[in-house]
Design a protein around this nucleic acid. Structure first.
Lengths: 339, 339
DNA sequence: TTGAAAGCGCTAACAG
DNA sequence: CTGTTAGCGCTTTCAA
């Protein structure tokens, strides 16, 4: 039932297992006749090599790990598509691990993939991640780690990012040009480089337009839907609520819409909003949502390509592979001025 | 650098590798003192067992495969969350494979996970899957396969489904009650059991209301966005376009909205629409989308639970685990009558 | 309570 | 061209 192996092929053909192994790998030192006999039987018996036995010897698991905060998020889902397409092309298998934005989960995951389970790791860190010993430990064990989107700047490796500062800048500038005087910035972390950069872009735009930045205009959200809902509700129930909002994380835009709907606050009349989002449905929201859209698929693709290039080298060379892929501001009705 | 192993621990402690192995597994036949010494050194050196070596001996890979058509779809993304939470709880690792709705991809994937790579498989078949030899082959090799959502009815195993017939029925009935006379049904397959059941429910509802069913009212879509867009466009550009639409697949509702927006066909005035969807954004679409919402997370959870129960048995017993989890019709503005 | 040794399935060096 | 053999890291009898 389970397990037709090399030994079985060998005994059925009355040849040695070494010959079978070589035949299966199309070695030059095996006669054509033997190869054909082996291949024929292998096909007949539906032989598939036990990957873990090969891995034990060969040192390559043909497996990578993708460690991300969440999969029910269109950015990460699309990234996975990008990663998978490259992995597939290279004959690699993809293990998925979700941190759910928890640092201790992230630590536990990296720990458990340390010894041989994977050849490399592609990750986007959790919003709680501030120190990086767990990541460096992995690197020290010879397992390359590549970052995409949420990178750790202090770590020397390939980093695929998008132009977060610029995106935050443009989003804010766009709102200002639409007449917003009082802009709120929704974020999930003050630790994440990506969040910081978006916020810095935001502040720079304010500054360039001689507008004041106030710490109170930052709304910190987290992984708890109910908490976020309350926070946004508290913000919007004020008489003098903001007239512009930047949701620097996809799901926060959705929550914001829900709150506005509930309070009957009209978008874009009373408040304009821009979401950082890859939602296909952004265009058909009520009203359609102006977005900063990241090249999610391409970023996943680039991260995987970077990883495989590293895996192909004897000595890892990280520097050159890093890249910044531009996001696009797509203007829709949620920031339209007229009406 | 790479690879602190049992041998290393043993030599540093001047004991045998057998003792180390037993100590690490907290065997009763090892003294407390020795256990502590081993554990201490293991922790110090950050020892993690090579999973593939264990797997080679033990026969368990502690890994399952999830084989699905697509990940950038909120139903599947949420299902993965449900699967992952159970896998995590059982100390299992999750390999993700995407078929992209292609049968040959599906075959190739099942082939490559045949020999020891995984202990079990959770899958939702591609829209092209009509015969099932590849799946049965896996079962014959002793690898249990559990289905969720898109099941193969002919195969004896655990199947987690939702009440597709009922959902199709209720969706149609709701449209009829809203006054629709001419209802179009969007699907991606006439082979998939799930699609058939939804369609059968649709037909039954029509029949119950003495309405005629016409083959022309079925719109076949596929995995090609552009194709679907054209098909829906052709449908809606007719003078006498349908006044009701059931999108039996999530993404088709989005496409439908786009087409209506382009043609300035008002929803729900000129046409009402129901989507089979788990999109969080359904409530804030323009107009908000009436949906049939599946219990995606719970279905993934149930499928994984079923698989682990099977893995815990000596002799597999499929029958009892199958279950049908109800979907919910959530009425929103896209089918509102008044206005 | 500890250790020696066989072996999981495969690969690769070396011999024939 | 084919076969013998050692060994990857681990678990598990069986002996000591």
């Amino acid at each position: 039932m389970a397990g037709v192996n090399i030994k079985m092929l060998a005994s059925k053909l009355n040849i040695s297992i070494a010959t079978v192994s070589k035949a299966l790998h199309d070695s030059h030192e095996i006669s054509l006749a033997t190869k054909q006999r082996v291949l024929a039987l292998a096909k007949e018996l539906n032989y598939v090599a036990n990957p873990y036995a090969s891995s034990l010897k060969g040192k390559s698991s043909k497996t990578i790990a993708v460690v991300i905060p969440e999969v029910a998020d269109s950015f990460f889902a699309l990234s996975i598509n990008g990663i998978e397409s490259i992995a597939q092309k290279n004959g690699y298998h993809v293990l998925i691990y979700l941190t759910h934005e928890s640092f201790s989960n992230e630590q536990a995951i990296l720990k458990v993939i340390q010894n041989g389970r994977v050849d490399g790791v592609i990750m986007s860190v959790s919003s709680e991640t501030t120190h990086t010993d767990h990541i460096q430990e992995l690197q020290q064990k010879g397992i390359p780690v590549v970052f995409f989107d949420r990178v750790c700047e202090g770590i020397d490796t390939v980093k695929i990012t998008t132009n977060d500062f610029q995106s935050g800048f443009e989003a804010t500038q766009h709102l200002i040009e639409c007449g917003c005087k009082n802009i709120s910035f929704f974020t999930i972390s003050d630790k994440l480089a990506i969040s910081q950069h978006r916020l810095e872009g935001h502040r720079q735009a304010l500054k360039d337009h001689q507008m004041e930045f106030n710490e109170k205009d930052i709304v910190f959200c987290n992984n708890d839907e109910a908490f976020n809902y309350e926070a946004i509700k508290n913000l919007m129930k004020q008489k003098k609520h903001p007239d512009g909002v930047i949701a620097s994380v996809e799901k926060l835009a959705t929550t914001f819409y829900v709150v506005c709907k509930e309070f009957k606050i009209s978008i874009p009349d009373k408040v304009k909003v821009i979401g950082f989002s890859n939602l296909a449905a952004a265009a058909i929201l009520n009203p359609s949502l102006t977005t900063v859209t990241q090249p999610a698929f391409d970023m996943g693709n680039a991260a995987a390509s970077g990883l495989f290039r590293i895996l192909g080298e004897k000595v890892f060379n990280y520097q050159e592979e890093s890249m910044v892929m531009p996001s696009a501001l797509v203007v829709r009705d949620s920031t339209s001025s007229g009406k």
